[in-house]
Design a protein around this nucleic acid. Sequence first.
RNA 1: GCCCAGGUAGUGUAGUGGCCUAUCAUGACGGCCUGUCACGCCGUCGACACGGAUUCGAAUUCCGUCCUGGGCGCCA
Length: 429
Amino acid sequence: MRLPIRAVTPETGSAEIIGWVHEIRDLGGLSFFLVRDRTGIIQVTIPKKKVPAEILEVARNVSRESVIRVRGSVKAIDKAPGGREIIPDELEIINLADSPLPLDVVEKVPAELDTRLDSRFLDARKPRVRAIFFIRSAVTCAATEFLASRGCINITTPKIVAAATEGGTELFPIAYFEKEAFLNQSPQLYKQMMMAAGFEAVFEIGPIFRAEEHNTVRHLNEATSLDIEVSFADHNDVMELLEDLIVHIYGSVAKNCADDLAEIGVDLAIPQKPFPRIPYVEAIEIANRSIEEKISFGDDLTPAAERAIGDTIGGHYFVVDWPTDIRPYYAMPYPDRPEFCKAFDLMHPRMELASGAQRIHVHDLLVERIRAKGLSPESFEFYLKTFRYGMPPHAGWGLGIERLVMTMLDLPNIREAVLFPRDRHRLTP
RNA sequence: GCCCAGGUAGUGUAGUGGCCUAUCAUGACGGCCUGUCACGCCGUCGACACGGAUUCGAAUUCCGUCCUGGGCGCCA
């Protein structure tokens, strides 16, 4: 019976482990193997005069990162990692690794990100990299639990679509039999349609595709979005839900991923709610106090502006009350001052994490806004139809999972938060 | 797409016209070593992105191509 390496303690007696050869140190009469699985690392010690010749022969031939099986007696030893080591009775090479390795898993010599991504499976054997993705898993699990506990229904919407969700973003065209189709940039329209279906509260964690030729440390052409939509809620209600979710996710990671956080060297501070709500007009004033290129009313916030505001606030915050003209057509304008709308962005001091709004649920107003954006209501008929037969008022948001993980763990590049990132130039592996 | 910086053994680097059949580390291979934990020591192996130009001479200068990183733009 194979034991996870973490489960092998000085008291274990005898154990069988299977894992990857992390390091080999041959001292002559004594050699040490460090064997790693996803739970940890253990030392296998081979005193050459005391073990059978077959074991010596196997040990002589093994290469780093080979998969081996070791069965033997566990000894308590202060000098070894974890205070224990295995003296093998059996040693088997399950799969011999080629040599040299494309990159150094032990990281005596660091590899550049591009090299690492070319051999991501090996890169992900590094405890530090593995820890990022175990935390990412904890993040999405915590989000799912939390949203389910708030009555949200977990849905899956199509990623192959016939029309753009909104203007602006470029779409990836694909061949769909005899028709033109695209990869969806957002589940926006579909989650709204589920409000018309009477589901009242839905969420989805899924891929979104953007064909923008951006080349930055915070953009991906394939990203993961956590989207929600809630009926009979306004923008304030879903902002509260969002900050509750962020606090819950941080708390859950802090509680359940202490070892992984330590592996990455992150001392996780849990954000305190409520997050400040900064009206757009104030936000540009704050930014303009310290940045060179001033923001004018009606401009989106530049990265420099976001950083300037982030430095001033020092934590997560919302930018609210955006000019209607720079938000998507489905954002609900304030009735008394329609030049502003009930849209918001959730910001981390480093960058934008989420954006949302109370949506327009009134058919004719929506048509008017689509026209005002220079889009054609005809191409949105499948969507507009759902507004004619009892669409409840609703609000929602979309949150970038990679950005959440990136900012939580202070990763320098968003690609660090994706197993196999898709960017302007990378399509493999 | 624009701007800037780059491309040297498997990995990461040094190298601003001749001291370069290229530095150091790591690695691989061989040897010595019974408590290593970045083990140590000895030996060996392995690289100038591609094409062109300048020059007596180019890793080094220039031009082009391809590729990479960062900033900006676009965007979330």
